[in-house]
Amino acid sequence: MQTRPKTIAIAIDMPESSHRAGAMVCMFAFLLLIILSSSVAGLFSSVAGAAEPLPTGGRHPLYHKALPPGAIWQSPAAVTMHQGAFQPVAFSGPEGTEFSLPLAGSHAESEPNLMAGLMVGAVYRFRITGIPGAIGAELYPTVELIGRTYPPPGLETLYPIPINLSETDLEEALDGNLVTRVIYLEDPQTAIPLAQQRTESRPIDIPLDQDALATADSLGRPIAIVRLGSKSPPRNPALESQFYFGFPAWAPIYKPDPAPQQP
């Protein structure tokens, strides 16, 4: 008990100037240690969280209908999807409708059965003309591929992703509504046992309180999102790039001409 005050007094009387530099180094090292440990802990917590299933709550983890086109691709969880691949897509619609994709500031030639290779992950805006019952009207929907198919080599163009639009889709869009179509790859184990054609445009209509992508996810693998609503491109040319989402590249696919008849 007699030596304790003496020790404290000695500690207080120690000169600070001799250890100031060392104390700063120690403080810097301590702060660095805290930052490193917190980042490492955060990494482990995120890894542990990734092992858990995502809490969907009836909604798709990546998508909400209020999100603009292309927002899925900005999600951090979307990095597992393969990017940079051209995926054949076939457009079809009611009798008389023609489709064309933008080509360097303009539009390519309209075709009734357009087929093109679109890049997975990019957002394309295409043009629909020749809408039945609406002479001169145009629609500029967007299509966004969020997946691709994996056909055996040589079958890519035989089995494109069909984007089949019905007449009611076009009518709803011309009426000023936003039509969202989520195209999914059907699971053959739970497929509907009804005969369908490739250009079948019968959708599953869901009400507003349901999530389109979550519904499609429950029926198969969502592969493309089509949004119909825009009726005209912007008049200001400066806005065209934003309207066309930067004119992403696409690869044209032409049907081979029939072999000429031998005389």
Partner: peptide, 25 residues
């Protein structure tokens, strides 16, 4: 057999602004 089949889920929203659904139809 390689025979993919595709389906579609459709949702029609009401008021549209910038292709965002902002209200009930």
């Amino acid at each position: 057999l390689y025979s993919p089949r595709f389906g579609a889920v459709r949702q029609v929203s009401g008021a549209v602004a910038g292709e965002k659904a902002i209200g009930l139809r």
